[in-house]
Design a protein around this nucleic acid. Structure first.
Lengths: 199, 199
DNA sequence: GGCCTAATTGAAACACGTTTCAACTCGGAT
DNA sequence: ATCCGAGTTGAAACGTGTTTCAATTAGGCC
């Protein structure tokens, strides 16, 4: 990403951390990033697109942490929950920011379809790697994760679906982070138990 | 609900059917419902709250249909998928409306926490009843569904989580309705298989 | 009927996302 | 050095959600 765009995204993240979605006023972002409003709009078609770019940035960081300290655990369950703990510590700790990013990615804007799918793909990839016991190696900047089996992919998809719904519930105030993790564990138990049986 | 409020909600639904979330311009809603803008705001604190009221309305209709023609099927899987088919036919067919309602309920507005939780409770209740093979009887306007077991509740919660995430994906253009139902079936297979084992 | 309170109305104003535009700047091709 | 086109700037304007407010109306109570 180009220097100016990065400055814009970082400014947006700062403002979102402080005051959430509403605090990301594009006039303020432009001013703080020392850019004209028109420049911001040349690079990001909307507030949502800007915040989704911020989400991409945060997910990249998450992936780096994931690769450097992959969740360890004796079984699938522990490793998968270790991954969700990582997301909580890496992203949800900054509640204002996390809520703002979730709101942006779930806005339903058709322009963001591709980015939304990419986000889910990232999470699912990390989930597949968590299901395995391998230590993921950083392979020239890319994650090494050859040929996931279709049952691994299916489990990861289902886990990600549950996780996404729980994130939405957290963002909407339906539950706090600890209950969210509890619910995730309960659902994961069902899912992993199901996946351990021959179809 | 009072007459004036109902008129406002129905007007909002009309507009949302025609043009989605953006087409629900509150000035237009007020004008079409023959009410002053201030009156609309006295009854609904925001556009999202208005649309969530519309969602409540639609979910009530869904529940009526559910009670009058409960999904039938030889096993849990078929009945649960029958329920999701019902939602598709009853709500998602009107794509503009459905997307608008989903956008509202997932807006993350703290004022809507209660309504969001209530929505999920409704869906989960119908899922519990679908898991069972009973014919749900309309019990004086309320659904008869005595004492769901904790394992039924857990399955219903997990199914609902997956379903909600898939709805968001559909609303965001990640997949169409048919692929969404396919994904739902695949995840439900995992979940129901897991629930059929002793914990 | 007269009165009191709450609801309604119409209209204006405000905030912020988004668009538009003319003037300006800058890096590279000639 | 000059010129060109793309990117940038600053400022204004527009649309829509939201707020505000004075004037009006409606409905129950004496």
């Amino acid at each position: 990403m180009e220097e100016r765009s990065r400055r814009i995204v970082e400014t947006a993240i700062d403002l979102a951390e402080k005051g959430g979605f509403e605090a990301v006023r594009l006039r303020d972002v432009a001013a703080d990033a020392e850019v004209a409003l028109g420049t911001l709009y040349r690079r990001f078609r909307s507030k949502e697109e800007l915040l989704v770019a911020a989400l991409e940035f945060e997910v990249e960081n998450l992936e780096k942490r994931f690769c450097s300290r992959p969740p360890s655990g004796a079984n699938e369950m522990e490793r998968v929950m270790g991954f969700f703990d990582l997301v909580v510590r890496g992203l949800l700790r900054r509640q204002n920011l996390a809520r703002a990013l979730l709101k942006a990615v779930s806005s339903g804007d058709p322009e963001l379809t591709q980015k939304m799918a990419a986000y889910h793909a990232h999470i699912e990839r990390m989930l597949v790697m968590s299901l395995r016991d391998e230590v993921p190696r950083d392979d020239g900047g890319e994650l090494a994760d050859p040929k996931p089996s279709s049952s691994e992919v299916q489990s990861a998809e289902t886990l990600n679906q549950v996780w996404y719904a729980l994130l939405m519930g957290w963002a909407g105030g339906v539950h706090g982070q600890a209950p969210m993790l509890e619910k995730m564990r309960a659902s994961a138990e069902l899912i992993l138990r199901g996946s351990s049986q021959a179809p």
